[in-house]
Computed example of a mutant assay.
Amino acid sequence: MTKEKEIQILQSLKGDTYFAQMFGDDIDRMCENISVDFPIESGCKFNTKAEVLQKELKEQKEQAKQEALDFAFGIILDFREGNGVRDKVYQTIESRIGIDEMIKFKHSQKIELSDTEINYLVGKLR
């Protein structure tokens, strides 16, 4: 395909097209890059957007990993302390997932609810 034909096709994708929805701001830049034999993506905004999203994803993964570690370390510390281990473990888990999810899970597993959880449910009835 010639440069001119490729540029013509890219120009035809401007306007109300799916291609333009994604690359609209970059179509003219792509055409210019083709005409001067540069890589088509040079200077395009979609690369910057992708880099920003990749950075955000990496940060979110790191944060999720740290939260999981903090949660696990909290459980380990609860076990280390000894007395009332079960209650401390439940408190640590509840602080992470919330009392509603704790109650749903315990109910699904036929685990007896604590007085605090029962009082919470009764309080919801008022």
Results as ranks from 00 to 15, higher is better:
Leu57Thr: 11
Leu77Met: 14
Gly43Pro: 13
Glu62Asn: 04
Glu56Lys: 13
Ile7Gly: 04
Glu41Arg: 03
Met1Gly: 15
Ala50Tyr: 02
Asp16Gln: 14
Gly82Leu: 01
Lys45Ala: 06
Glu6Pro: 08
Val52Glu: 14
Glu4Asp: 14
Phe79Asp: 04
Phe23Asp: 03
Leu53Met: 10
Cys31Gly: 04
Met30Thr: 00
Arg29Ile: 14
Phe46Gly: 00
Asn33Ile: 00
Glu59Val: 11
Phe38Leu: 10
Gly24Thr: 02
Cys31Gln: 03
Gln66Ser: 13
Leu57Pro: 06
Gly84Arg: 04
Glu81Gly: 05
Asn47Met: 05
Glu41Gly: 02
Glu4Lys: 14
Ile9Ala: 11
Glu56His: 13
Leu69Ser: 11
Asn33Val: 00
Gln60Asn: 15
Cys44Trp: 00
Asp70Ile: 02
Met1Lys: 10
Ile9Lys: 13
Leu10Gln: 09
Ser35Phe: 05
Ile27Gly: 01
Asp70Arg: 12
Leu53Trp: 03
Glu56Thr: 09
Leu57Asn: 15
Phe46His: 15
Val85Glu: 12
Lys14Thr: 12
Leu53Tyr: 09
Ser42Tyr: 10
Phe79Ile: 06
Pro39Gln: 02
Asn33Ala: 01
Lys61Cys: 10
Tyr18Pro: 05
Leu69Lys: 14
Ala20Arg: 01
Ser35Cys: 02
Thr17Ser: 15
Asp25Met: 07
Ala68Ser: 14
Leu77Lys: 15
Ile9His: 11
Ile76Ser: 13
Lys65Asp: 07
Ile34Phe: 02
Lys45Glu: 15
Ala20Ser: 15
Ile7Met: 07
Phe46Tyr: 14
Asp78Pro: 00
Ser42Val: 09
Lys65Trp: 06
Val85Ser: 14
Ile27Leu: 07
Leu57Gly: 10
Pro39Leu: 01
Gly84His: 06
Ala64Asn: 11
Asp37Arg: 05
Met22Leu: 11
Met22Phe: 08
Ser35Trp: 04
Cys31Lys: 02
Leu13Gln: 14
Lys5Asp: 11
Ser12Pro: 10
Asp37Phe: 02
Asp70Val: 04
Asn47Glu: 04
Lys3Asn: 12
